[in-house]
Simulated scan of single mutants.
Amino acid sequence: MSRKTLSLLSAFPIIFFASATHAEYQLNLQTPATPIAHEIYQLHNLILLVCLFIFIVVFGVMFYALYKHRKAVGHQAVQFHENTRLEIIWTIIPFFILIGMAYPTTKTIFAMRNAGHPDISIKVTGHQWMWEYEYISEGVRYLSSSSTPRDQIDNKADKGEHYLLEVDHPMVVPTGKKVRVLLTSTDVIHSWWLPQFGVKQDAIPGFIHEAWFQVEKPGTYRGQCAELCGVGHGFMPIVVEAMAPEEYSAWLARQKASTAEQAAASSRTFTLDELKAQGEKAFMANCAVCHQATGQGTAGVFPPLIDGAPFSAGKNMTDPLTERGFWKADKIVLGPKNRHLDIVMHGIPGTPMPGFSGQLSDVDIAAVISYERNSWGNHTGDVIQPAEVSALRKPAG
């Protein structure tokens, strides 16, 4: 063996273990953090052991028979059929194996569905592409959006430790308490999936599904939307912060105070600079996935928000929409601000543009519109105040 070959072989363990330090090799489910997740984990391991046992027995007997009774040692094939005893044996044994697997499986499924008598109920609503958390009976409601910097997504910066698994406002729950989540959606089917909690439940428009969990230890737990829900599907992470009960109570008090402040802010008059600063944050969290951070849009799918930027409606878009000017920047961002406000509030039926009236606060809606009308070379000088948004929410008369 040459010296070069020996040096390569000796370097292999170093290369392997060096690469292993940069990646975590997970060969099983994530570490359980709730009682249900523990049951799922144990059930998973049990079924794997049963499958391994069956594999060893079946293939062991088969390979033994092939080797022991091979033609090379003088054995002749024996013709036989309709062996009643053998047929009964290979029917009864799998039957008992299946019963043995079905009992713990059914027990775990019933436990997963037992969401009664919760300590806390949280309504979770899926939107394209963010989650809305509403703490029922607490008066606390907020949106949770991906907080991964745009530069990382566009490969202009190194990826962070929790790339695409970080949010601006996580769900917060106390440890040791039974938390029921009620899931629904406002647009398409989403799926709220937290592996360490043993929870994966679809959120379907017009329906409410439920699940529950009870976190054992404080910590940060991460998941994702597990249902293909559009171009922003990969930007819809789930983060849950589990706190000790006393810390949770303090957090809840702060959230209630923040909600009261937001309600008071609806009557305040903001400067254009204040609105643009707030609007940029709201735009990056809610609009940049479709219209891009530069306002250029996505060719053939989502229109640009800059005057003069080209856009083709494409085969999937209805031509009258283009003729009515809904997709033209000079008719939206540079057109009448009331029309712009109406589109952001209520969306455009029959198109991918959703309404944000049920997702964003009065301040955020006013800010994002002011930002769009005065950014990327748009200089309308228009200012939308939160009071205008609030007035639009109120029914006429």
Rank of each mutant, 00 (worst) to 15 (best):
Q262E: 12
F326S: 05
L392C: 08
F235K: 13
K394G: 06
D154F: 07
L43K: 06
A65V: 12
L275Y: 01
L46C: 00
Q385M: 07
A264D: 12
S10V: 14
A157S: 13
K178T: 05
Q26N: 12
W193I: 01
Q214I: 04
H38Y: 11
M243N: 07
M243R: 14
V181F: 08
G139D: 04
D168R: 13
P304G: 09
Q30D: 09
G358W: 10
G234I: 08
F59V: 10
K217R: 14
S312F: 08
L143P: 01
K71I: 00
R141A: 02
I54K: 11
A329H: 03
Y142H: 10
G126T: 09
Q224I: 08
P13G: 07
S267Q: 14
F95K: 08
D151R: 14
M243V: 09
I332Q: 13
A299E: 10
Y142L: 08
G60M: 07
I189S: 11
S375Q: 13
Q201H: 07
L228A: 12
Q30C: 00
F197Q: 02
S10F: 15
D307I: 12
K315E: 06
K315A: 10
T298D: 00
A72Y: 09
M284L: 15
S249F: 00
K156W: 04
T125L: 08
F55V: 07
V389R: 04
V50N: 03
L27E: 12
R254E: 14
P32E: 09
D330K: 13
P205C: 07
S144I: 09
S19Y: 11
M236W: 02
S258A: 15
I306F: 00
V58G: 03
P395G: 05
F12D: 04
V58N: 11
I153Y: 08
I332V: 14
G116I: 03
H340E: 04
V344R: 01
F270K: 02
C225A: 08
Q201V: 15
E82C: 01
H44F: 13
T184S: 13
W212C: 02
A387P: 02
E24Y: 11
G234K: 10
A111E: 14
T84K: 14
W212P: 02
S312A: 11
H38T: 11
N155C: 03
V363W: 00
W251K: 00
V188M: 11
G219Q: 07
V239T: 13
P174V: 03
A366R: 01
L252E: 02
T294W: 00
A396T: 12
E247M: 05
